[in-house]
Design a protein around this nucleic acid. Sequence first.
DNA 1: TCTGGGGTCCTAGGACCC
DNA 2: TCTGGGGTCCTAGGACCC
Length: 404
Amino acid sequence: MNSPVVVLSNNDGCIISRTDEAKKLGVGMAAPYYQNKDIIEKNKVAVFSSNYHLYGDLSARVMDTLRFVSGDNSVEVYSVDEAFVDLKSVAKEDLPSFGVTLKDTVELWTGIKVSVGIAPTKVLSKVANRLSKKDKAGSKGVLVLDTEEKIKEALENTKVDDLWGVGRQYALKVRNLGIENGWQLRNMPVEWARKNLGGVVGTRLIKELNGESCIPMKDPLETKKMIATTRMFGSPVFELKDIKEAVATYVSRAAEKLRRQCCAASAIDVFVVTNGHKEEKYVYSPQSRHRSMTIPIATSNTHELIQYAMPLVDHLYEKGVKYLKAGVTLSGLVPDASIQANLFATENRNEQRHLMETIDNINFSQRDDMIKYAATGLKRNWKMRQEMRSKRYTTRWEELYEIK
DNA sequence: TCTGGGGTCCTAGGACCC
DNA sequence: TCTGGGGTCCTAGGACCC
């Protein structure tokens, strides 16, 4: 109990999540793992690779609970660990108890502790949520900003950098003008924000801080506009063959995601990240190159997509260069059903679609990659490292949690 | 020799998010 | 020796059109 824990990014590269105990030891956020190995070993910090099967499954359970408790109010899943709930239909005086019910039910049903922030706009609710999380005793994990005074106090206690929508660049600009906290920013003129903070982005931010809702809830049925699969290699790669295998594998993954949302892609982009040459001394200064093409007839067929991708890799490849990473982005996504009948389309398009469906079903029900394309390789010596992954307790029979 | 104005669409790149 | 992955939205500027 209470021992420090950190979670690593893919490829065991960076530290992307830390418990309070680990933060206290001075382990930095997004810091490279190897740079912190000393502190970690000295303090017996528990280290885990990331485990997306587990996170995804627990996330789904939490989101289901939110939907159940929220009834007719719409829920927008914002990320694996965050969601917005529209509370327009909840009476103002009922907001605090609603928040508490939401929090308690999630914890009771899933074992996951959450914090709840309630306010007139998305930006302000993020402010509320952040404060409720920090002030563990005071707010008990639920904070409602329902009066001007509470909003003022909350914004005064929030640095500009901690506002949703203010990143490094904007924070720098705003700081240079002597604006330090959310309340000061809120009182800046909208016109100033339009000029200096990315046009409509800035004006929206100021308005949201002023309680005027400008960032609407997203329709849960909306499909993605682009789908990417990218990975660092487990160790640097030099051979064209290895890069091709990797890219073919990423294309397969991306195509699966594409089919899952019933879309087809009309453009494909392949990129690689290089870092110097074979014999050169290692200096970390990654550079990326990419190559793209428009697909004549939008498709979701893995085989076709691999065929489009391979020549792009040929073009990108240069002998003797050290490759750290590769990736594929599918874009120009259109609904599957809308693909035009084309005179030149091959007769067997439907058969191909059935084949894809069958492969997806097998891979989904059995195990990832039960059936794969030969182009994706067998040895896969470029595969990423994941040396300290916890078990996939809730999604794999072989890895079920055991109680002795 | 003089050489407009207004519009749309697309893409690359920047900024942001978790 | 080792530095994550997957998204969104917006803007500026070029190409093209009449």
